[in-house]
């Protein structure tokens, strides 16, 4: 049996509660990308945000989100605007799904 303390559980639920907020952020980026494109500074910001998400989602056992954001972060420079937009959409859906 893997005993998990209440404090750990509390942290987990706090993280889960932050997922809709994260999904909203991705939605914002998606919107930017589909309406004129994310600025260069924005791209850096997004990349470092994805980096964080890859780490934290993994720590909180949202493996799919972690893997997806890691691979998105790494492939971002090679993606067309279309592709980036559709992956952001997918990420948003993943986050929303996990928040349920």
């Amino acid at each position: 049996m893997k005993a998990e303390s209440d404090q750990v559980r509390a942290l987990r639920s706090r993280y889960k509660e932050s997922l809709p907020e994260k999904a909203a952020l991705v939605r914002e980026w998606h919107l930017q990308e589909t309406s004129g494109g994310i600025s260069e500074a924005g791209v850096d910001e997004l990349s470092s945000w994805l980096h964080k998400l890859a780490g934290s989602a993994g720590m909180y056992e949202y493996q799919e989100i972690s893997d997806f954001s890691r691979s998105l972060m790494q492939s971002m420079p090679d993606l067309s605007s279309q592709e980036l937009a559709s992956r952001l959409k997918k990420l948003e859906l993943l986050l929303e799904g996990a928040a349920k």
Binding site: S5, Q7, V8, L11, R12, R14, Y15, S18, K52, G55, S56, M59, Y60
Partner: peptide, 9 residues
């Protein structure tokens, strides 16, 4: 988020 969890663990 990462800091809090890792520290606690």
């Amino acid at each position: 988020d990462i800091a809090a969890l890792l520290k606690l663990l």
